[in-house]
Design a protein around this nucleic acid. Structure first.
Lengths: 221, 221
DNA sequence: ATCACATATTGATCAGCATCAAAAAGGCAC
DNA sequence: GTGCCTTTTTGATGCTGATCAATATGTGAT
């Protein structure tokens, strides 16, 4: 994505709602097994979630099964915040995922009684909006290679540029995020590998070492 | 778009920030000629805008000129709200446009001192996010015909289902909104016309009568 | 280790939309 | 109205990415 700065170094209890933590607002924890639904589109929006460990995809479906993933959520990220009474999209655990959760009503109430946290909550929503704006540019106007390069740089950034990046999602998930097919994603990754921009680590294809981040950024428009 | 309910009947002074109007918050009005820039990506985000008459496009550009329009703003709509110090996208008047504008700092300050308006401001941002989520689904997963049908239904809804809808934007604007080329948009409109779903009114091609909204909705996925 | 199933890669072909091109229609100044 | 420029439509062709298909690799259970 275009905006990568300041997305790094997110830690638990260090996000926009840090001020609320430890105030009996985050009432409980919960664990989801790989592939299970956290909530579905149209479900009552009772809780807000923060990921402790694991990863979650949020997505919308068309009637015939076409899927668009809005975003991937990693440890520290919050999701599920809704204005209305029901969720506008679905959320599923990509892998075994532990979350902290609290009631939305409780959150809004707490926020309303506290100056400053208002702005934090607003910032949280604004950041999602910013991500969405960048993603619309990607979906509307970028080529397959540009999309995949942007995706790798986004994940790299959100994992704080590790030597070996772990992708918790399948090729199909990546494809549904980028508005492509899984075959096209696979081919693009192969091109980038053959061009010496990345290397797959070990036996799995979900551990990636970025060998040339600047080169990758060239591929991204 | 998927969400059309409650987008109708928006009037001036009747939006999310109605509570703020008449409180010397909206300091002034300004007029932009057709095609002129309201603000550019990266500009200092000093003001928030509300359209009185006319229409505005907000968009992002890639280095080589590819453009993605995030949204079209019609009378009553607000835009230009930013979390950070600078605008994340550009805004231009589609036609001669009159706006009301106020300083962001002033808005935030006023909001902070008033219970309730916080939630309204939050709702404003959340609505933009909701629009973005629906648009990502369109950009990532819908065909050209589905996109154009969805566009017509969105505009129809936002103009409160008039007999004759006026499109203030060019085919190129529509294309850049829908992630297509202007030729593809033109062809899709011709298909819908030939199928009896719409009719062009008068001499211009920017006045459209929707003859069969349910039929159009079938085209949309 | 073996088997069954899920995931990923790679290849061949196809289709939808983009691109290139030209003509028609509309808008606007004079 | 006339002329000029912009916008829109329509047509011909091409290319990117989708689809269909086969193989390879990985994973998890027993």
């Amino acid at each position: 994505m275009l905006v990568r700065t300041n997305e790094t170094m997110r830690r638990l209890n260090d996000g926009p709602l840090a001020v609320l933590v430890g105030e009996r607002v985050f009432s409980s924890e919960f664990k989801y097994r790989k592939g299970t639904e956290v909530f579905g589109e149209g479900d009552a929006a009772e809780y807000v979630y923060q990921i402790i460990t694991g990863a979650v995809r949020t997505y919308k479906l068309l009637a015939d099964g076409r899927r668009q993933i809005n975003s991937f959520h990693l440890p520290g990220d919050m999701f599920g915040f809704e204005n209305g009474a029901s969720h506008r999209f679905s959320a599923e655990a990509l892998v075994e995922t532990k979350v902290r959760l609290m009631r939305q009503r409780s959150l809004l109430h707490t926020v309303a009684s506290r100056e400053g946290s208002t702005t934090n909550l607003l910032r949280l929503v604004t950041q999602s909006l910013q991500h969405a704006e960048n993603h619309m540019l990607l979906l509307g106007r970028k080529t397959a290679l540009e999309r995949v390069a942007a995706f790798l740089l986004e994940m790299d950034d959100r994992q704080s540029h590790p030597d070996v990046m772990i992708l918790p999602m399948s090729r199909r998930d990546i494809a549904d995020y980028l508005g492509l097919t899984l075959e096209t994603v696979s081919r693009a990754l192969s091109v980038l590998r053959d061009d010496g921009l990345l290397r797959f680590i070990g036996t799995t294809q979900r551990q990636v070492a970025l060998l040339n981040r600047c080169g990758l950024a060239q591929y991204d428009a």
